[in-house]
Nucleic acid binder design. Structure first.
Lengths: 240, 240, 240, 240
DNA sequence: AATGAATGAGGATTCATTCAT
DNA sequence: AATGAATGAATCCTCATTCAT
């Protein structure tokens, strides 16, 4: 059923900007009225958490604000004190997760003499292994599912999470080619190739969980083996 | 007490071929009454097309049956003659596409002496290049987006479209390893690696179209180069 | 959902008057086209019967024309050839039953020297005993249930079925008083008293069937005993 | 994308007493928020009244929730806060009336030396006289008309209203026989005989009102005269 | 700040009726 | 005369949002 009756455009300048706790603007007063800032922050957090669960379970359109409120243990009107519309709440949820530095890779630099394959194994692989745990896969699935309704959010996601990783891989691919580690410039032209399996994995585990969970970490390790050759120390799963 | 009802103009005739009669394929009857089976089939098909467009544009929950009907040029109640509920209509849309043999690969066998990479370039690559045109990418995105609401449909999709391709790639990977074309068994353990970029491409073109369309065919070609080495005749996109 | 969109007022002068078979106005022609009048009459009858069943099962509003048609084994449009609207069909059903002389009583005159109680036992009691079988109770229940929607029909029912019986009883009550068989003029003033249990019985068997069927014939016999005293020959169900 | 929503005027306050809180009787809370329980109860009651009127006027199927809301002076969605479905609202209406102790008879015991006829004149007759006023006749008609759709409700009605009166009459009939007041055991075997005219009266006044209202009280008095003999003090409507 | 009763726009669905075949 | 596909008005119900308390 979607949002048909919102008061304003999502993300527009509403009284209470999405993503900020109401009390943010309230100067501390003596004779404190209402909940402590601490409690308020906790409440906002509980609402976001509840909303994430609700959206993931039902999708944006079918999740109800009443359900969110109930999961958060607050009254039906309370989430509106933190997010002016359902859309803003959704954005709050997604940005909460995007904000948590989507991928560690790109933050660390290659060690001296470290080959690209080794570097990826050291930095990106652990992130992959954790990707389900961190709820990032779930949010990615949410963005995919609801992207048509939230172009602005998609743009943020693309800019903050999707492109940086691709650019980083592109650069690494270029280095790998320059250093003779790769003969093909495929990763330079299509860094998507490296992360594609990751996305497939997230989707697989979102859609086809019942038919068996895909171990994204293991898959990524195998992919690195396939593209960069097996790691030198541990000659694991290869043939001949 | 009684309210007049205008008869209403018959919806504009659309002209789309193929399709099925409302309930089941109606056996030809003598003394044919009512619209020809042909026209009925056209109408059903027009509704499915309209629904696909509507679902792709708004998502399942936000697409309205009225919109579907209007796009199909029929009255609001007409889609219900062909699909008892909105959900059934959605399933009709997806199965329509699934039914159209998702990938050519697996239908053809490898030629004598043909290497696996070459075989994939010959069979799977063309399918990739057409994947957007055929609406398969769009349907895949729909299944991803609405999967939580349609577990049965997801299962069908998995069984009919997703798994067969993975199994085929797994088998090919095994052959490639046995024949020395690949040294890693990564594709045997995770055939997902090969199709991952394909899925990413579909999502990319669904979500980030505005930031640039990803050429899935080219990307897949590059991927084959990366994994299987460049094709012998045309030494194209590689370095040094 | 009732009839909201009928073309005209129920019972008004439509092309095909309710209650008449279509062929009624068609002069016999040689080279006969279409079904024989006989078959047509049978079809009309089948539709009425199907409608009666449907209305009794679901009530007027919830019975669907499609259901009626299916029960009658004809196409959805066919009933409209015999009855212009659903309301007309309903009226056709009721009048069909009303037409069948609701009660035998009143048709026969008292025998010479026959007391009123005996006369009622001889004439009305058998009608009571059959009232369920004849479907008259069912139609009475229908009229009760849907009366608000069919004032004209209620009026017919009242005039043709309800009042005649009351008038007859009133007259008999007067005779009974005059002849000393009854001391109270209650039946003269309220002939309803005599038929009230009958109505209750019909309702009981319509509503509370599951909790036990009420034997209307037996009840009426007991009522006659109570009011007129036990029949002389067989002193059955009384005390002392 | 977002459509503006007017806030709308709050519905006019109605002023009807008694009733229940939406879900269950809400225990008084400290720091009371929202409308007083009193106002909530009034609103619920107003909705029930409006629904009773609507159902009685149109029958269940043809009464619309919008009409109920309008009659109650509330918004279209408000009745749903009190009754989850139209059916539940109907049940609420019926139980509201059933709950009001259907008949005084059976609550009072016979006075010492009071004959059964006198007792019935003292207790049941006044209830009969009021039966239309209290809306009980209307509800009985509703139950009759819509019984097929509400078997559970019919059962409640039977258990709470119908059977108790029959059992009471049966017992009284037995006493009357034992005490020599009645010679026939008809009322013992068929207590329905005594209440039958009452039901007929309710139906008569529901269906045939236009042709003249039946005075149920007078009729019942006449019936008691007929069955138990005239009251000793006032030798009223009998024939010399 | 929080509550939750009330609002009312919106949409899926039903089905009496029409009419081309 | 019969058919049954198509029509579209009507209505139940949901739920995001508001606001008096």
């Amino acid at each position: 059923m979607a949002v048909k009756r919102g008061a304003g455009q999502a993300g527009a300048e509403d009284a209470t900007p999405a993503g900020q706790a109401p009390q943010a603007r309230r100067p501390l007063r003596r004779g404190q009225r209402g909940p402590s800032p601490d409690k308020t922050a906790r409440r906002r957090d509980g609402i976001v958490r509840a909303a994430m669960a609700a959206f993931m379970e039902h999708g944006f359109a079918d999740a109800t604000m009443a359900d969110v409120a109930q999961r958060a243990g607050v009254a039906k009107g309370t989430p509106y004190r933190y997010f002016p519309t359902k859309e803003a709440l959704f954005e709050g949820v997604v940005q909460e997760v995007i904000g948590k530095a989507l991928f560690g890779a790109g933050k660390e630099t290659r060690l001296a003499g470290e080959r690209v394959g080794a570097y990826l194994r050291r930095t990106l692989l652990p992130a992959m292994r954790e990707i389900e745990l961190a709820g990032r896969a779930a949010v990615a699935r949410l963005v995919i599912a609801e992207g048509a309704r939230f172009p602005a959010l998609v743009e943020v996601y693309r800019r903050e999470a999707y492109e940086p990783l691709l650019r980083r891989i592109e650069a690494l691919g270029r280095e790998a080619v320059a250093e003779g580690e790769l003969r093909s410039d495929a990763l330079v032209r299509f860094p998507h190739i490296l992360v594609g399996p990751l996305w497939l994995g997230m989707l697989h585990n979102g859609l086809f969980r019942q038919a068996g969970v895909l171990d994204i970490g293991e898959m990524f390790a195998a992919e690195l083996d396939l593209i960069f050759g097996p790691p030198p120390e541990s000659p694991p799963t290869h043939v001949g």
